[in-house]
């Protein structure tokens, strides 16, 4: 079993993302979309819908959910799960906001 550690990486300021919008950042395993909800909570998910890999970053954000722009699947940002009746999951990434700065937890294989 491989051991992983979490490195917190500074991404951008909270205000770099408009409420109810998302921005994307490149990453080795595929683009990451960072969402900001109307209550200023922030979520990070791989930028692909479990259905047809639509760019979730382009979807309409509402509550803690985003609707995929391609076929309207709704993804729960808290769990990454598609909202019923659809079934599928988009990987989530650890994210935190401190003093108006967004940090992403980067999984680094160790040892």
């Amino acid at each position: 079993m491989s051991v992983t550690t979490l490195n917190w990486v500074q991404i951008c300021k909270l205000d770099d993302i408009l409420p109810l919008r998302a921005r994307v950042i490149p990453a080795a395993k595929g683009e990451i979309a960072i969402f900001r909800c109307s209550d200023d909570s922030v979520f990070a998910l791989r930028n692909r819908c479990p259905h047809k890999q639509g760019h979730l970053s382009e979807g309409i954000v509402h509550g803690h959910r985003v609707a995929c722009p391609l076929h309207g699947w709704v993804i729960d940002l808290e769990s990454g799960e598609a909202v019923a009746p659809d079934n599928g999951c988009t990987p989530r990434l650890p994210v935190k906001v401190e003093d108006g700065v967004i940090w992403l937890g980067n999984d680094v294989a160790a040892g």
Binding site: V9, D16, R23, I25, P26, L104
Partner: peptide
Amino acid sequence: LASPQEAL
């Protein structure tokens, strides 16, 4: 967004 210093 600009790429951070550490590769993700």
